[in-house]
Amino acid sequence: MLSVANLACERDERVLFANLAFTVAAGSLWQVQGANGSGKTTLLRILAGLNGDYSGELQWQGKVCSEVRTEYQQALFFLGHAPSVNRTLTPLQNLRWFCALQGFADDAAIHSALNEHGLRGYADIPCYQMSAGQQRRVSLARLSLTSAKLWILDEPFTALDRVGVAELEARVSRHAAAGGAVILTTHHPLQTQHPLTVLNLDALRPEAA
């Protein structure tokens, strides 16, 4: 689905990675590993098309990503460090806007997504009254609403409790098993049913080799 060729990025005079090449196939689950500051977030944001400060080529279904931007963005779900949840709005208002940006409206689906993520009864509570973990769940409820094939998740387990972590592990496994693809970063040892491909940025760094 997504293939990367000859990708290099440097930041503040430091080579984060160079000559990076890999292909994320349908049905695969990728974990990007590396120490703090190794460029995991940068890599994910480059893959999502947010960061354009790199050299190399990104291809989506065999076509250059920047040339099929809309098509690529339709197929992509990205979740960064920040939960993308507005604290003054309610979960329902937050998710309605998300759905509208994806081009649909479906309140029933939003309610069932919230229920699925353990937020039954919270639909109309302003998010600032909720805990960090609950806000993260609002954010992750989007996974039940999006029809994107490729998920790119930066530290999605942050602030989740043990049950939430297990649920998310199961969710990404199911998505990969159903023919989707997931690229994520985490510092916690993943326990997934689906086979995991690890991309270790520390091991790839030129001076480490």
Binding site: Q73, L76, F78, G80, A82, S84, V85, N86, L101, G103
Partner: peptide, 21 residues
């Protein structure tokens, strides 16, 4: 606030015409 909480990323990555939004 959209920048701080990440909503701006969602807007920029949505398949919508950003000009109008």
């Amino acid at each position: 606030s959209d920048y701080d909480d990440g909503s701006l990323e969602q807007l920029l990555l949505s398949p919508q015409p950003l000009y109008f939004h």
